[in-house]
Computed example of a mutant assay.
Amino acid sequence: MIVENGRRVVKLMRYQCRPAGKPSFNDVKLPSTYNARRDSLGGYWKDLFGYSHGTIVANAFFENVSRYAMEHRDLAPDGKEQNVVLEFRSRPQQDMLIACLWSHWTGRDEPDLLSFAAITDDPPPEVAAAGHDRCIIPIKSEHVDAWLNPDRSNLAALYAILDDRDRPYYEHRLAA
């Protein structure tokens, strides 16, 4: 969901942000652009943070984690790293408004692209204990209008919205 012409609208977008002005080969060169790390909002994401904000509604999210990190053990000397996918759900289950940045990319001889990245931050203890080092940021419903209509001249207020986030408890299970 974004604001367009003063109204909230739902837009279909790709989940891997290609910021306007960046080359399309960044999709391969920088494949992690499906998440915007909070600590890089003033760096790589500075042209979107404070300008192009959105939310997605989700009641679960999925993360790739090391099996060894999830099981709280070290990789054996002859061991091979294994990846597992975990599903995290809030308890009690609820729809969450996930803070995002989005972009309308245009390029020569390529189709226009609407895309977004979810903003992530340090994980709560239960996500870290499951072996992951990042977590999405669910914003409170009372902050949605201020988030979707960002005031670039007051970045501190936008960071305050990310700080005053919903803090559900996340249970996890193997997703596959």
Rank of each mutant, 00 (worst) to 15 (best):
R67W: 12
R67A: 15
V127E: 03
S52K: 12
S32A: 14
A36E: 08
L75I: 09
L75H: 01
W105D: 01
D122Q: 12
D39N: 14
A129F: 10
A117T: 09
D121G: 13
Q93R: 07
S115E: 05
G131T: 01
Q82W: 07
L86I: 08
F49V: 14
L113Q: 09
R108P: 00
G50R: 03
P77V: 00
E81C: 02
A60S: 15
E87V: 05
Y34Q: 01
G50A: 05
Q93G: 12
D74L: 14
Q93L: 12
N35V: 14
E63A: 12
A76P: 03
H132I: 14
L101R: 08
Q94I: 06
A128I: 07
K29F: 04
D39Y: 11
G43F: 06
L86W: 07
T33Q: 10
L97S: 11
L30V: 00
L97D: 11
V85D: 07
A99M: 04
P111L: 00
S103L: 07
S40M: 09
W105G: 02
P124G: 08
Q93N: 14
R38G: 10
N59P: 07
D133N: 08
T120V: 06
M96Q: 14
A118T: 10
S32C: 10
D95Q: 11
D109C: 04
D95R: 10
G131P: 01
V127P: 12
E126F: 10
A99D: 01
D133Q: 07
P111V: 02
P125A: 15
P111F: 00
V57F: 07
D47F: 05
R73N: 07
F116D: 05
T120K: 12
D112M: 04
K80W: 09
P77E: 14
F116S: 11
A99W: 01
H72Y: 05
L48T: 01
S32K: 12
Y44G: 02
E87R: 15
L114A: 03
F116M: 15
A118Q: 09
E110Q: 15
P92V: 05
L101K: 05
N35R: 14
G79V: 04
I119P: 12
R37Y: 06
W102V: 08
S115P: 01
D133E: 11
A129G: 07
V57H: 09
Y34N: 04
M70D: 08
V84C: 11
D112Q: 06
W45D: 05
